[in-house]
Simulated scan of single mutants.
Amino acid sequence: MTSRAIVVDRPGTHRLATGPRPAPGPGEVLVEVAAAGICMSDREVYDGHRDAAFVRYPVIPGHEWSGTVVAVGPGADPALVGRRTVAEGFRACGVCARCRYGETSLCTGGYAETGFTEPGAFADHVVVPARLLHPLRDDADLRAAALLEPSAVIAAAVRAGRARPGERIAVVGAGTLGLLAVQWLAAGSPAVLAVVDPREARGALALGFGGSLALTPEEAESVYGSFDLVVETAGAATTAASSCLLARRGGRVVLTGMFTEGAVGIDPVHLSLSQLEVRSVFGASSSAWVDAVRAFDLGLLDPAPLITHEFPLERFGEAVALVGGGDPKTGKVLLVP
């Protein structure tokens, strides 16, 4: 039996490779991929802009995905065969101090992540350790479930931000992470849920996801200092600094965007005078994954409306070009093997 995969040999170069279907090793499972999302991190891998410590070429990308277990290796539970599932991306060691503390996204055993250093899901099949699986309900929408990885990141952000009912909350950015954050935070009954994005069309979309107010960055300047919690999701050059300005004195700011060199720094004078609590999120811990899958299974989180484009593996070049292209009509782009 054969299996196809998108291989990025080096930045800017990819090929569709066909070879023997991979076999799961001890403690591993083989998953038939149903859908895989393309995010800006994948675009960075393709363009060669990801930090060299967090990618290994050649690589099969794909860290946002869902599928069905079709085979198990020695030591893995045979009952997993046939289960719809997603899986954590970080290959945490499980034994270091950070893992034992529950901070599996900060594992000190060495960075390893599906789709960046290990073969990912832009393929017909992906092999992952069985211990990383989060099985879904038998009737789960696997197309929507492909977005559970960014959902888990938002679950981590909401945990870090400790959102409370009746608070004034702002979400900066109305991309995939931002809209998932709006949907999640709206379920907690905030007094105000504002969304800040320069693209008016994306702001309007956020209102349909549960936001109560859509603002451009210029309009948001009039409400600086107003919010109990600010969840930053854009990773743009100015959004870390502006998110801190949006928070009230004593407020909380959670940074989830992946910033690059040249981002504007946070003013330390403002931090000290405002007594802000600033947290950042890198991926999602195992506990955040549990939160996301539970919310999805209960119907509290529905990522399906975020999906705007679907492509077969053969059209990966077209698909990746859409991501980060700036078109406000482009939401989540999926590869569907």
Rank of each mutant, 00 (worst) to 15 (best):
160 A>L: 07
214 A>S: 15
220 A>L: 06
207 L>Y: 08
154 I>R: 01
268 P>I: 02
211 G>D: 08
263 A>G: 13
180 L>I: 07
275 Q>Y: 01
234 A>V: 07
228 D>W: 12
244 C>H: 09
201 A>W: 07
221 E>L: 13
200 E>L: 05
156 A>K: 03
216 T>P: 08
266 I>W: 00
179 L>K: 04
158 V>D: 03
233 T>I: 03
180 L>V: 10
246 L>M: 14
224 Y>I: 10
222 S>F: 15
236 A>F: 01
248 R>C: 09
277 E>H: 13
262 G>W: 02
271 L>H: 00
174 A>T: 04
216 T>Q: 12
154 I>Y: 01
159 R>E: 11
203 G>V: 07
211 G>E: 05
197 D>S: 05
258 M>F: 11
229 L>R: 14
211 G>N: 10
250 G>S: 12
269 V>P: 01
170 A>I: 05
237 A>C: 02
270 H>G: 04
255 L>M: 10
154 I>K: 04
217 P>L: 08
201 A>F: 00
209 F>L: 07
272 S>I: 03
221 E>T: 13
188 G>M: 15
195 V>F: 13
174 A>R: 14
245 L>G: 12
197 D>V: 01
199 R>Y: 03
153 V>L: 05
170 A>L: 04
226 S>P: 00
156 A>C: 01
180 L>Q: 03
259 F>S: 04
248 R>E: 14
210 G>Q: 12
183 Q>V: 02
218 E>Y: 14
223 V>G: 05
235 G>Y: 00
